[in-house]
Design a protein around this nucleic acid. Structure first.
Lengths: 191, 191
DNA sequence: GTCTATAGCGGGATAGAC
DNA sequence: GTCTATCCCGCTATAGAC
């Protein structure tokens, strides 16, 4: 049975979409209120300040990433399936040609964000980097992956490439390059 | 003999720095005026609207990139030296741990930018992609580079990785990873 | 070309009724 | 929890003196 999400969750969902579309500094409580169909003053009941809203967004995003990667771990997938699961959300964002990664947009606005948002954003990147480094390390040890660099560096390269691909898709309003680019990443891992 | 740049150029220089530090939507005419030591109203004499200023910034950046790459072409460098020259500005931005690439920050704010800025930003990326694709194509044809993907895709991968690296450095406030990451990119080209 | 002064808008945020 | 009403602020932009 599906119950409509509570108001707080709906606010977070709308805010997250606006964050990915425009960035944190370029959407307002008014924008959220318009979409949700309530008055902007009411939003302050749920999130007293925009910094509180931003911190909640960043925290939810880090928590979701951690949970999603732990779910992947529980599925007994092959290394290549694990990597595909990791790539998937980035590929979807690139294919949209308009949405930013929540982590990426917070990184690009870093210096203007309230400190709690900055810290949660760092957590997000630490989570995905740790996970990917571990998968790369295990994959190479088991002989399923072949690459020269240190796993921690390879993880940085891959995450940078995925984040950058989302930007490139926006600059071009076209994501035809994304599938062959993913193949290129896999080739660099011996795939 | 060094003459101090004209006011218009000084405005562009200050605005560019603020753009790289905070993004286009997060700096104001007041910020520029404070740094330049004149009143914000005076800025409108040089750039009637902020959209005009943004368009001038984006155009100058595209022109500079084109000129810089043409200069590299005239130096009779080896392919690897050409690539190093290409990587250099991205590496410097990553090492700053706080400045964004002008192109990258415009890409991340794309949907909120005035159309002339969007178009100049696309030009910038087209310029660097065209140049890098050509160098990769020639380098492989001459046997100096070895890689499997299409040169146009390899160029996308490299540009995405460089743009993403700048983001990663900001998330970590540390760029120790950047040199080995560059080595990893070179390794993917047979270096 | 730079100044003062100000218009006009939209932002985040609060008070208090319901 | 949501409303109306309001406050204060900073923003872009303009008018007109110098």
């Amino acid at each position: 049975m599906i119950q409509s999400p509570d108001t707080r969750t709906q606010i977070l969902d709308i805010a997250e979409h606006l964050l990915q579309l425009r960035g944190f500094n370029a959407f307002s409580y008014q924008d959220i209120a318009n979409e949700l169909g309530i008055r902007k003053a009411s939003l302050h009941y749920h999130f007293p300040s925009k910094a509180d809203l931003g911190a909640a967004l960043a925290e939810r995003h880090a928590n979701r990433a951690l949970a999603a990667l732990q779910s992947v771990d529980e599925l007994n997938l092959t290394v290549w399936q694990q990597l595909d699961a990791f790539f998937k959300p980035f590929i979807e964002l690139a294919n949209s040609c308009e949405l930013m990664c929540v982590g990426g947009v917070m990184a690009s606005e870093y210096s203007t964000l309230p400190p709690p948002m900055q810290n949660r954003m760092k957590e997000f990147f630490a989570i995905i980097h740790t996970w990917l480094t571990r998968v790369l390390t295990q994959g190479r040890a088991s002989g399923q992956l072949y690459f020269g660099a240190e796993p921690t560096i390879k993880a940085d390269t891959i995450i940078a490439t995925l984040e950058g691909s989302i930007l490139i898709a926006k600059t071009r309003q076209n994501a035809d390059f994304i599938d062959p680019l993913i193949q290129d990443i896999k080739a660099s891992l011996g795939g």
